[in-house]
Design a protein around this nucleic acid. Structure first.
Length: 564
RNA sequence: CGGGGCGUGGCGCAGUUAGGUAGCGCGCAUCGUUCGGGACGAUGAGGUCGGAGGUUCAAAUCCUCUCGCCCCGACCA
């Protein structure tokens, strides 16, 4: 491809609204353009990268027996009503009516369609197992997109679905995907860590997220470098040590003016935050007030809490009036004397003796509060966030926290969807059983952005060879003055093109500075410079974009290697 | 949805406080000189200042409403 003909432009200045390196560079180098919030066009260069990522994924999906297909972006709402998700999913699903007034939705994912196809196509155990997948557009009307391609509303995802006769089959399909994902991300140049993830209240039994480590990542990961334990903080078990046993002392009310926060309370009383109990309040989607108690040195984990109380429609922070209505005083609250609320006690807090807790009276706290003696929680379980340095739940070594970007997930769905849609098969023994499903996703645009995050420097992108839009960028310098340069560059480009090897050829009549700067910005793995100087030195100057290593080599050598 | 910020040629910005009829840099076009690290000179094209309404002799600037985008939080099948 001649750069003079390429539908693109590079920008000298960083776009004002791009903060992450991947966003900045992909826009500046002419790979993508924004159309609206969370909606992007892939320009020819960006599309080529996306296609190359797609091909890597396709290879590995086919290698585990995946069958590529394509399912629609527009679905009849009735199908989503059958599984109950039409009502369950909020405004992130786009709904509209077609010309006949039928309710339609834009696909956020394709479990429904797969399960619908199953009841049509699969009738016998002989047809199982199977893995189907496609690369298809999803639209999720996220409340907030961010980070360029990191979190968008419209994106192409590889989603695959495993179809099995039983749970053992699902286990095999899951393991196949796990291994395939490791290969895919390695080939894409992405260092990922697979973490255990929340399966939510949707019924799945096991899920992993493949996380690209990145400081700007939205997820916090709890990682044990000693034993390899890794989990999303949303579900990571807290491995804090047992508190030292103490005699339970008598409860005692003390005046603690102006101490609505744990920090101010601990400072006033001269105790550690680990000697306090923190009460926080949430309301479930179906209107229940939940009082969550953790020790003052921990934070409440809303995912764990939501799962613990089986919150329908999630949790939102409670309002002051709602807390007071249950007999508690915000800032000085405890479950003692509370009513009409579900009290969930963190298990570590429950094991910690003689804590300071609110007196439910403005400006007062209680000393020596003990769970079980002074109040009875409805539920005692782990609802706290694991912290850096806490013991690994697996081996006890101190864990570290890292930020990550979810680039892929694998999920054991089970039979929820096939049950809802009646997708059954006849087994060998004649019994009618539900097909067991798993679903597995990789977002292409997000993967592209993560690759740039991991492969760039202050000059631009440095694509891994596996996904680069072209293997090399050929740059001619001074062609307009030295016919030999033009001939050498044109000749090399022409011969390689004829041989089916595509290069990006900067044939523009620009100054050396512009062309070299652009070549580094665009990030092809190798930059081939042909100039009077290089010809004198023996041919083509080959620069490895990532390492910066340069060598001058005969044109024929370079040509032979690229024909490879 | 809460908080904050921003909308002025393709990109980055100034001008808004103290209303007077739009400017700078880059990019773009043409010509000339340059040519291995975002060259230089000359000439030129391109914007009714996100939109609507209002105040005024006069609005990018003041008022009202509205749309959009970014960041933090909430949210995230």
């Amino acid at each position: 491809m001649r750069l003079s003909r390429l539908f693109f432009t590079s920008l000298r200045d960083d776009p004002a609204d791009a903060e992450m390196a991947s966003h900045r560079l992909l826009v500046r180098a002419g790979y993508v353009r924004q159309l609206g919030a969370g909606i992007y066009s892939l320009l020819p260069l960006g599309f080529r990268v996306s296609q190359r990522i797609e091909q890597v994924i396709r290879d590995e999906m086919n290698a585990i027996g995946g069958q590529e297909m394509e399912m629609p972006v527009v679905h009849p709402a009735d199908l989503w009503r059958e599984t109950g998700r039409y009502a369950k999913i909020g405004p992130e699903m786009v709904r509209f009516k077609d010309r006949s007034g039928r309710d339609m939705v834009l696909a956020m994912t394709h479990e429904e369609v797969v399960a619908d196809l199953l009841r049509d196509l699969v009738k016998s155990y002989r047809q199982l197992p199977a893995i189907v997948y496609h690369f298809q557009t999803k639209f999720r009307d996220e409340p907030r997109s961010r980070g360029g391609l990191i979190r968008v509303r419209e994106f192409v995802m590889k989603d695959s679905y495993s179809l099995d006769a039983d749970a053992a089959g699902l286990d095999r399909a899951y393991d196949l995907h796990y291994a395939a994902y490791e290969k895919i991300f390695e080939r894409l140049g992405l260092a990922t860590v697979a973490v255990g993830a929340d399966v939510g209240i949707m019924g799945g039994s096991l899920a992993h997220e493949f996380m690209a480590l990145n400081d700007a990542g939205e997820d916090t990961l709890v990682i044990c470098e000693a034993c390899g334990y890794a989990a999303n903080q949303q579900i990571a078990a807290v491995g804090a040590p047992d508190p030292a046993p103490e005699e339970l002392r008598l409860i005692e009310e003390v005046a603690t003016p102006e101490t609505p926060t744990i920090a101010s309370l601990a400072a006033l009383l001269g105790v550690g935050t680990d000697r306090t109990a923190k009460a926080t309040f949430f309301v479930t989607g179906d209107g229940r007030l939940v009082t969550a108690i953790v020790r003052g040195d921990f934070e409440v984990n809303e995912t764990k809490l939501g799962n613990a109380v089986k919150a329908i429609g999630g949790l939102r922070p409670a309002q002051t009036e709602e807390i007071k209505a249950a007999g508690m005083e915000p800032g000085y609250a405890s479950p003692i004397g509370a009513h009409d609320t579900t009290v969930v006690m963190d298990e570590l807090a429950a094991r910690s003796p003689n804590l300071v807790a609110g007196a439910n009276r403005h400006g007062y706290h209680l000393l020596n509060v003990n769970s079980g003696r002074d109040f009875t929680p409805d539920l005692v379980t782990d609802i706290a966030n694991a912290r850096a340095g806490d013991g690994c739940p697996n081996c006890g070594s101190p864990v570290v926290l890292r930020q990550g970007i979810e680039v892929g997930n694998i999920f054991k769905l089970g039979t929820d969807f096939t049950k809802a849609l009646g997708s059954t098969y006849l087994a060998e023994d004649g019994s009618r059983n539900l097909v067991v499903m798993g679903s597995y996703g990789i977002g292409l645009g997000r993967a592209m952005a993560c690759i740039v995050e991991a492969h760039h420097d202050d000059k631009g992108i440095a694509w891994p060879a596996s996904v680069a839009p072209y293997p090399a960028q050929l740059v001619s310098l001074g062609a307009s003055r030295d016919p030999a340069v033009g001939e050498a560059a044109e000749g090399l480009y022409q011969r390689l093109t004829d041989a089916g090897v595509e290069l990006l050829y900067d044939d523009r009549d620009e100054s050396p500075g512009v062309k070299l700067t652009d070549a580094e910005l665009l990030g092809m793995p190798r930059i081939l410079t042909i100039s009077p100087r290089s010809l004198t030195a023996g041919g083509v100057e080959v620069t490895d974009r990532a390492s910066g290593e340069r060598s001058v080599r005969p044109v024929s050598d370079v040509e032979a290697e690229l024909r490879g």
